[in-house]
Design a binder for these strands. Sequence first.
DNA 1: CTAATTTGACCTCT
DNA 2: AGAGGTCAAATTAG
Length: 278
Amino acid sequence: MEEFLGENPHKRLIKELLVEGKIFSVQLQSLLKQPNESVLADELIQKIWGSLTQAITVLNSLGNSDNSLTQSQIEKVDQPNSGSGLKMKKEKQDRRGCYKRRKTSGSWMRESETMNDGCAWRKYGQKKILNSKYPRCYYRCTHKYDQECRATKQVQIIQENPTKMYHTTYFGNHTCNSTKIPKHTYNSQFNHAMVKHSNSTVLKEEEEEEEEESKGQSDNASSIVDSNLWQDFMPSSPSAHDSTLAANYNAAYYEGVISSHDMEDLAKFGEIEAIEFC
DNA sequence: CTAATTTGACCTCT
DNA sequence: AGAGGTCAAATTAG
């Protein structure tokens, strides 16, 4: 959510709808023509979903200025030495229950057979939810305090499903450096999972890194690759001049996925340094 | 002993 | 008023 602040909403919408939506859709289309690619196709579907969710978030913020104000106020309160009344209250009183009810914007969801996503989470609460057979569990990043990582998630068993499936809602990005996501993947952050994971060399490197890292952790290692895939569609601030990103955009243009007009917009907003097409 | 989990209380929001 | 989100003391696990 924070990544939206200070970013041009128009720019964000173009990224989410014109670029990500189109690129991922076409990639999915080509994947569906190939056998044995159902896992990657599923990941792409999740990414498209995430992209659309982000776009809706931006639209919501455009359509309701009151919400934007509330968000900025919340951010202000969170800053140290803000001196606001709420902050004073937080410092001097019992902080239990002192929170703003979470809005669904800025969140994204995932359904899986395992709760494990490769990150270190700490459970901080569990609630019985109305009309729900199973309770909802609340998790925050283990490094909330030592690295000020504000990522949280809510996990709920999907009751309709006979096999145990988990519906997880994520809030905020991990800002800690404890995730198993290789830096080159995490930092580029503009959802290049298809590019990266279709490259066997890169994938192998990632698996080796993960194997090293997983030695000291209790998480189930079986879902590490899966976790890296889904982590790629975490909403986050893209690197404006990421070379892979620019290459991806240009490839998308050549494939006809995005138009010259889209590319002009991207150049205008600084997503690519120069328009490479003729 | 330390870290994680459980659980009831407390608070905000609808 | 009640549902949902968070806190923190108590408890459990490693």
